[in-house]
Amino acid sequence: MLNYLVRRLLIAFVTLLLVTFVIFGLVRNMPGTPLTTDPAMMDPSKQISPEDLRRLEKLYGLDKPWYESYFIWIGNLARFDLGRSIAQNNRPVIGLIGERVGATLTLSATSLVLTYLLSIPLGLWTTVHSGSVRERTLSTVLYMLYSLPSFVAALFLQILLAVKLGWLPLLGMVSDDYASLSGLGKAWDIFCHALMPVACFTYGSLAYYTRFIHSNMQEVIRQDYIRTARAKGVPPRRVIAHHAFRNALIPLVTLIGLTLPALLSGAVILERIFTWPGMGSLFFESISQRDYPVIMGLTLVFSILTLLGQLLADLLYAVVDPRVSYS
């Protein structure tokens, strides 16, 4: 087991180095630098002289070739220094990311909890009522939701709930008068703003998980031990919850590991549509500003989470299913 873990971690480490190397090369070779894409520079009166530009490039280390900069970046990383943002007033990258984590987690963690809370009962319900008209309707609706692109859903919801009915605020995370609200008012304000984004984050995975549980349960309830349990007189409810669902859990657990990166990466399009100040928005901004340190910091976080998620999925698999072992 330990052997396996060490080998996996080593492979993950190498993959991480390669991923950051490729991304570093790609972003550094995108046309434009953080110094030339700054909107203030477009104004001819504020344009800096070539000497100043060269001085700034030297200051930020942009005068070196990218592979050299990469090794400097790795060196700093080894000392847990992600560098400072170029486009956003020299602020440390860790601080910038830390500011945005809360907003993204508000959406993704809520949506993850909601997904599990709703999809498990729905999945079990569709299994029990399999073939009935109600189940077919629900499954069809879920299938359609699964195919509905989240940005289309977000725009439709905005038109319906914010523009036509005026029930919910259209954009943002807080209202303009947020600072003057009381503690409870603040919470309510964020709640109202978060409703639509959370719904858009949730419905797709809800549909996917429900279908996933349903199809796994369909496979499990055909097993012999379920027939045995029924035959010996176990109540139907207990057969489903205790005998069948516990075995359908195995693939579900591996899914948890794979959702780990989604927890922090947010969704760029959704956060853009709702102008939600999360990680996805930061990512989008940093790419359009060519803010290399921020792009690299975010890429690092996302890649680590992806690799950890895959590892976690495999490990959890061995934990839930005693037949699987890695020794």
């Binding site: 490729v22 972003v27 995108m30 890649s303 992806t306």
Partner: peptide
């Protein structure tokens, strides 16, 4: 698979 798809796509588009 590990490279964030959006970075890859946007970087290629920017070129």
């Amino acid at each position: 698979m590990c490279i964030p798809a959006l970075v890859l796509i946007l970087a290629l588009i920017a070129i």
